[in-house]
């Protein structure tokens, strides 16, 4: 089992400034899953509860000189502490820039999988090692990782990953992630459960309700991807709640209940600076999915080498 690659400058920026801070909010520990073509950061795919988050990078988005080999179709997976990983990347960056940087090949950041004897231990332990070669010195940082996943566990992870790829039939674009985040953060003080309904008309309706209070927000005329329909004009006159109830009865909308903390967590992904975000409900209301879209810088074209989406567990499937 071998893995060795150089993080590109762009890869370092993507990870350090955008993805790792966002993924850190999703949970301390994630699985780093490396294949011949892709690197995945996966949260909660094997545990079954909590928000699942799937960040996928084509190897060229992060690395060059990417070498991987294992007896399991060149697939390697292990658990890693995101905050430690981010610290290692960040300090490597500062070393690189201290040493003059300039993009010369001399001080590139190499990462590799190693097994080492930690101090005061007789058991070799796996690490992800960051090696920064400077002008006269080299700095090595070892980030502890879990034992690499077994063949069966990797298969399980791959299956969970394949299953997490199903797309909702209707997706609506969130108008303003920051504003929604702000609202949901304040909503957290009022209730624990959030009803989310999404219609083919482009309505997103979130509501929390307790015995004492009902608090909700409705966003209308959002961009719809997938199945869409025209809103009946008579619906204009109704309240947000009535409108979404009618749309559900008509089969033009779906509604699920999620944990408001999960919802807020999924919004934290805006730290990864996506260009837009879409919410949708998976078929049969299996989960609430949020898909973040990244454009090729300077264009409105989707950057297919990067993808990020989250799946929020649904609390009451009825």
């Amino acid at each position: 089992m071998k893995f060795k690659a150089f993080l590109t400058e762009n890869g370092v920026i993507l990870l350090e400034k955008r993805f790792l801070p966002a993924l850190d909010k999703m949970g301390k520990i994630c699985h780093l899953f490396l294949t011949r073509e892709h690197a995945f950061f996966l949260h909660n795919l094997l545990s079954g509860d909590g928000v699942q988050s799937i960040a996928q990078f084509h190897k060229e988005a992060l690395f060059d000189d990417y070498r991987i080999s294992s007896q399991n179709e060149d697939r390697i997976a292990f658990a890693i502490d995101i905050s430690l990983l981010n610290r290692a990347v960040r300090s490597s960056v500062s070393i690189c820039s201290e040493l003059g940087g300039g993009g010369s090949t001399a001080n590139r950041l190499q990462i590799k999988l190693v097994k080492k004897l930690p101090p005061n231990s007789t058991l070799p332990t796996p690490f992800l090692t960051f090696e920064t070669k400077g002008y006269k010195s080299a700095v090595i940082q070892d980030v502890p990782i879990s034992k690499p996943l077994s063949r069966t566990q990797v298969l399980e992870l791959q299956t969970a990953l394949d299953m997490a790829q199903d797309l909702p039939q209707t997706l609506v674009q969130v108008p303003d992630l920051n504003q929604l985040q702000n609202f949901v953060d304040r909503m957290k003080h009022v209730g624990d459960l959030l009803n989310v309904s999404i219609s083919k008309y482009g309505d997103l309706h979130v509501q929390t309700s307790t015995t004492l209070i009902t608090l909700g927000a409705e966003f209308r005329k959002l961009l719809v991807i997938g199945e869409q329909a025209f809103a009946p004009p008579e619906d204009q006159t109704f309240s947000a709640q009535t409108r979404s109830e009618r749309a559900i009865l008509r089969g033009d909308a779906q509604s699920v209940q999620v944990n408001v903390k999960h919802f807020s967590k999924s919004l934290q992904c805006h730290l990864a600076k996506p260009d837009c975000a879409f919410y949708g409900i998976a078929p049969q209301g299996a989960c609430l999915t949020v898909i973040f879209q990244f454009f090729i810088p300077g264009t409105r074209q989707t950057d297919k080498s990067i993808s990020l989406h989250c799946r929020l567990p649904v609390l009451d499937p009825s």
Binding site: T211, E218, F219
Partner: peptide, 11 residues
């Protein structure tokens, strides 16, 4: 705004 609305009902 016409296209977004926050509402609350307090008992």
């Amino acid at each position: 705004s016409l296209d977004s609305c926050i509402y609350a009902e307090v008992r």
